[in-house]
Simulated scan of single mutants.
Amino acid sequence: MRRSLKLAAVVLSGSLGIASLAACGAKSTDNTSSSTGAAAGASGLKVGMAYDIGGRGDQSFNDSAARGLDKAKSELGVTVNEAEAKTGEAEADKETRLKSLVTAGYNPVIAVGFVYQSAVEKVAKDNPNVKFAIIDSASATQPSNVTSLTFSEQEGSYLAGVAAASKTKTKKVGFIGGVQSELIKKFEAGYKAGVASVDPSIPVFTTYLTTPPDFSGFNDPGKGKEAAQGQLDKGADVIYSAAGSSGNGAIEAVSNKQGAWAIGVDSDQAAQPALVKYKDHILTSMVKNVDTAVYSYIKAAKDGNPLTGVKNFDLKANGVSLSTTGGFIDEYKAKLDAATQAITSGATKVPTVPQG
Rank of each mutant, 00 (worst) to 15 (best):
D266K: 09
V350H: 02
T352R: 07
K94M: 14
N31V: 15
K192I: 13
L5F: 14
A334C: 01
A163M: 09
A228I: 07
E121V: 15
Y240W: 07
S246E: 06
P221L: 13
K99F: 05
V265C: 15
V254R: 01
Y295L: 08
K277T: 12
G55S: 03
K167N: 01
K172G: 01
S245Y: 11
K172Y: 00
A42W: 06
G174N: 00
A342T: 12
N107H: 15
D280M: 05
E188L: 12
L101H: 06
S296Q: 15
K99Q: 15
V310P: 01
K279F: 11
I298Y: 01
E331T: 14
T141C: 02
D52T: 15
E182L: 04
F175I: 09
Q258E: 10
D30F: 12
T292L: 15
T32W: 13
A119T: 07
T168M: 01
T210M: 04
K185W: 03
T348D: 11
N62E: 05
A124K: 10
K186S: 07
Y106H: 10
P108V: 06
A347G: 02
G44M: 06
V123W: 07
L307D: 00
P306D: 03
N248E: 13
A338D: 11
I135H: 11
T206S: 13
F215V: 14
I184S: 00
K185C: 01
E155I: 09
P221S: 08
V287N: 00
A39W: 14
D337A: 03
K279E: 13
K99W: 07
V276Y: 03
K125E: 12
A22E: 12
S35Q: 12
E75A: 11
P212G: 07
L232S: 01
Q231C: 05
S64R: 14
A334R: 05
Y295C: 04
K125Y: 09
L69I: 15
A65K: 12
V290P: 02
A236T: 07
I53Q: 08
N107F: 02
V198D: 02
A164L: 03
M286Q: 14
Q117A: 11
F328C: 00
K169I: 08
E226P: 07
A50R: 07
K234Y: 04
A165D: 02
T32C: 15
Q142C: 00
K171G: 00
T344E: 05
S64H: 08
A339N: 04
K73M: 10
F328D: 02
K27A: 10
Q117D: 11
L21V: 06
K223D: 13
V123H: 08
T36A: 11
A72C: 06
Y106M: 08
F205N: 13
D337Y: 08
V350N: 01
N312F: 04
L69V: 15
A104C: 06
S28V: 14
G319W: 08
E82P: 09
P354I: 04
A92C: 03
P273A: 02
T308Q: 10
G57S: 03
A300P: 10
K171S: 05
V287L: 02
F205R: 02
A72M: 03
K234H: 01
D237A: 01
A140G: 07
G174P: 02
L16G: 05
K225V: 09
K99A: 10
